[in-house]
């Protein structure tokens, strides 16, 4: 389906900040997040749990928890600022123009309805089509997500399916209305690696076919390299590095990005090259009460920490030699000579 391309990006998030009101006072869980997403583009949000990846996605969907609110910035979706949208507008948007799939395919399907009914529900709500054509469409969708013998499985309940099949059904529901953006929040964490490869292939194929932009939320650098063109590394509610995946993975500038890549044992056929100890990132993500301070929040865990890192929050600066590769660090690794 050909969609007209315009100059403005599909999604333009500008200086988004989100605050939580907690018993300990107001905390900034997202601090000045900006990024853009073009039609059909695939981007990954990377970082440890508690860094704001999922919160960014929930903010896009208008699904922030009750204690949270957008405290600054704009979410421009085709020019419309979603931070100002009404609840009714967001309800029409969700599942229609922007969809989301979650980590746990076991708990995100309703156990008391058949998978067919759950796909039909979305189509009837957003498309207003009658039951019979919605069911025909549901069958097509189940075939599109490669559920074997779909016409027999359409009346199955979620518990009758395997984990991988349930995630396929989630994808079918999410793509039922051919959304412009699909947010996939750790979609394969609960699945076997062979099933993961199939789900990734499916998402890539369907994303290309429908010209759907995909935001993948993950902590797995391998998944990033498989799935995305661009990536955004988040730490403690901030964007610390952004760029094309090839640039960022090939020459990570932020010590955090570098640590995330190095601390995972990557498979090699040269076993002799394996070191006894993995490079570690010391410590853990700070509690959200520390977020939002005017300092580098990664400094306590950083191998390159120096005087001044705690004096002010580092601003995002462009890396020389790469197009659209930026980093927020007082002492980034230089892009040249950083290979390997």
């Amino acid at each position: 389906m050909a969609k007209t391309r315009t100059d403005a990006p599909l999604l333009d998030v500008r200086n988004l900040s989100v605050q939580f009101t907690t018993r300990a006072g107001t905390v900034t869980v997202l601090d000045d997040i900006s990024f853009t997403l073009e039609r059909g583009e695939r981007i990954s949000f990377v970082g440890e749990s508690g860094c704001g990846k999922s919160m960014t996605a929930l903010a896009l969907m208008g699904l922030l928890p009750a204690m949270g609110r957008v405290s600054g910035g704009q979410i421009l979706f085709k020019g419309e600022d979603l931070t100002q949208a009404s609840a009714a507008r967001l309800r029409r948007l969700r599942g229609n123009e922007v969809s989301m799939i979650f980590q746990e395919p076991m708990t995100s399907l309703n156990p008391v309805f058949t998978i067919g009914q759950q796909i039909v529900e979305v189509l009837r709500l957003h498309r207003g089509i009658d039951n019979a054509s919605a069911r025909r469409r549901a069958l097509e969708l189940l075939e599109a997500v490669r559920i074997p013998n779909a016409s027999a499985r359409i009346d199955d309940y979620p518990h009758q399916l395997s984990g991988g099949q349930r995630q396929r059904v989630m994808i079918a529901i999410a793509l039922a209305c051919e959304p412009e953006i699909l947010i996939a929040d750790e979609p394969t964490t609960a699945l076997d690696v062979t099933v993961q490869a199939e789900i990734f292939a499916l998402l890539r194929d369907l994303g290309t076919k429908l010209d759907t932009a995909i935001i993948l939320i993950t902590h797995d650098m391998g998944a990033v390299a498989q799935m995305s063109e661009r990536m955004l590394v988040m730490y403690a509610g901030r964007r610390v590095e952004e760029g094309r995946v090839a640039d960022v993975v090939g020459a990570p500038a932020h010590p955090y990005t570098r640590g995330l890549i190095a601390c995972v044992p990557h498979i090699t056929s040269n076993v002799a090259a394996i070191t006894e100890q993995l490079p570690e990132i010391d410590g853990i993500v700070p509690p959200i009460t520390r977020f939002g301070r005017d300092e580098c929040l990664f400094a306590p865990r950083c191998i390159r920490v120096a005087d001044g890192c705690l004096a002010a929050k580092p601003q995002q600066v462009e890396m020389a030699g790469h197009d659209a590769h930026s980093v927020a660090c007082w002492h980034p690794f230089a892009s040249e000579g950083a290979k390997g």
Binding site: V193, Q196, A197, E198, F200, G222, A225, Q226, G250, I261
Partner: peptide, 13 residues
């Protein structure tokens, strides 16, 4: 099936 960090090398599970 294990995704590698080599960009463009797609897992073939």
């Amino acid at each position: 099936a294990v995704p590698t960090i080599e960009v463009g090398a797609q897992a073939t599970g």
